[in-house]
Design a protein around this nucleic acid. Sequence first.
DNA 1: CTGAAAGCGCTTACAG
DNA 2: CTGAAAGCGCTTACAG
Lengths: 342, 342
Amino acid sequence: MDKTVTLEDVARAAGVGKGTVDRVLHNRGRVAEKTRERVLACIEELKYRPNMAARMLAQKRSYRIAVCFHDLEHEFWEQVKEGVDRAAEEYEPMGVQVEPFILPQIDVDSQLAVIRRVVEEKYDGLAIVPYCAKEISDALNDAIARGVQVTTFNNREEDVHACYIGLDGLQSGRTAGRLMSMIASPRSRYIIISAHGSRMRQIDQRAIGFQEVLGAQRPDMVCVGSFVFEEDFDKVYRFSAEEVPRMGINAIYATNGCVAVVGKGVAENGVGAGIRIIGHDLTPTVVRYLRSGDIDVTISQEPENQGYLSVQKICRKLLAGEEMEDYYTRIGIVVSENIAFS
Amino acid sequence: MDKTVTLEDVARAAGVGKGTVDRVLHNRGRVAEKTRERVLACIEELKYRPNMAARMLAQKRSYRIAVCFHDLEHEFWEQVKEGVDRAAEEYEPMGVQVEPFILPQIDVDSQLAVIRRVVEEKYDGLAIVPYCAKEISDALNDAIARGVQVTTFNNREEDVHACYIGLDGLQSGRTAGRLMSMIASPRSRYIIISAHGSRMRQIDQRAIGFQEVLGAQRPDMVCVGSFVFEEDFDKVYRFSAEEVPRMGINAIYATNGCVAVVGKGVAENGVGAGIRIIGHDLTPTVVRYLRSGDIDVTISQEPENQGYLSVQKICRKLLAGEEMEDYYTRIGIVVSENIAFS
DNA sequence: CTGAAAGCGCTTACAG
DNA sequence: CTGAAAGCGCTTACAG
């Protein structure tokens, strides 16, 4: 085998000490421009690739990363948390400490407080589900400017200059639309149900994508209405159990995990068989109604992976200098038969 | 922070040298039973966790891993190869050399020759798509007995005592069946098309699962026939273009990537609009006909990940002693809208 | 601005 | 059967 090129080889070739090469490698400054160029040339020449194992061993520094999301819709965020915990465990031996800040509500002020604290206490990184509000975007951009490594996940806010990990909302809605177009019977009357506040832009996009595709594929279908509930699954349940049965519809699109209570409400009223239901997420409750046949299809979004990746990307940036890049999670289509393999 | 426990701490606690602890850790023998027990107790006591970075740094050994699969249905195996290459790149700096043996055909003798060579030349690992044949199973079990780390992927053979990475064939067929049951119109007449030899057991399972679910969900549908072609996409194409249009059917299930030429054949005859087509895999050609609307749904199976994981698991076993466990790849459901996010 | 030295936690020969 | 020592490739103070 061709001997692996080490930092020492580079140092020797450039006629300098290892410390100097290290400074060049990490732009730690305090290196004469000429020396710098020579070292860079040697690195290029010898095709030097740093050995990550050695780097991690030698690196004694410790890092702190804050993770901020909420816990409304507990079953979903529980899955996100599992991913966060997995990343925390994986990177703990490398000196990374992960601290979750889990808000009870979708609340702009609470989130702002977390961001401020992160900046003040000089955390090295922040993974966050950014709410749609100018103060939030500003605060995040400010944190980034001060050197905090930030990833946003689950909800995308265009004006935050950080990488995003999560669903493409529009496209996931289109996917739901295509499926509905394939399974709904002729001249179906349908409604759209949403259950979230105005802070989660990504979820709004889903309804738009859904309508777009359904409009194009199934001009015979008619939309009876679009109902938005403020993050309150109980209301959605009552609506589904009491109002929906009287509406004379045969298809429902629920834009998030609230599809679980939609399926429940409709099923308990014995009108389920006649209504096609498509929703989002794969929480234990959704699984239950998917299995029972009350929900036909659900769109999944890799919550565990969202939690994992948003932390992992920060760790790799901090530890190995890897650039953080956007990552769109899979738009999974789940029916009863592939639940266990999704 | 609580200081991390090192191997040296354990050695000191047990009153032995670091070398001895190392021997115990890796069962290298040559340790008195009493000493061994004492060391084990200390490891337990101090909750010692080996530092992977340090281990990799110190480990100078190099490993060779052979990977064996075929190239019939090139587009599919190309995706597998990408995963293999990614793993090869990732583990190369750790002294692992990956050598692919890509057979032009599904041929038992050629595969047998590869296995023999792996044993003779003392490769450390083998990732293989095992063909359904007693000689193969025997040879693989023999290789395993001789200490070769073996993973099987894409096709599962029960009698090989190695871990498996790939689809659950039966369940993927059931998933296809469920989807067909949702989109086929009343009293549809359907056929099943397969294009593979008798060496790939996993693919046969798909048709079984499909029939099972369709039989239960849609007693109104009638199966007109099941057609098996020996790994010959040209024949499938001709069949689809010439025979199928005269059969008076409105649904087709193709059990693998041959769905691409089925879609093509049917589409070119202008009868596509009336026929629902569901198949497997997400090759460039399948994507094309999915986009055009000639294929309705395809079931994906993470080919890239199959290639990656079958090599990665061997590397982690060799390098870090991690046990190799079965991994069922995702049963993905893909329609035109989620192609890019699958 | 720069280099020599110590150390990260483990494995690998090498003596005993 | 067992221990002391060297070394893996990098980073981190510490002198200069």
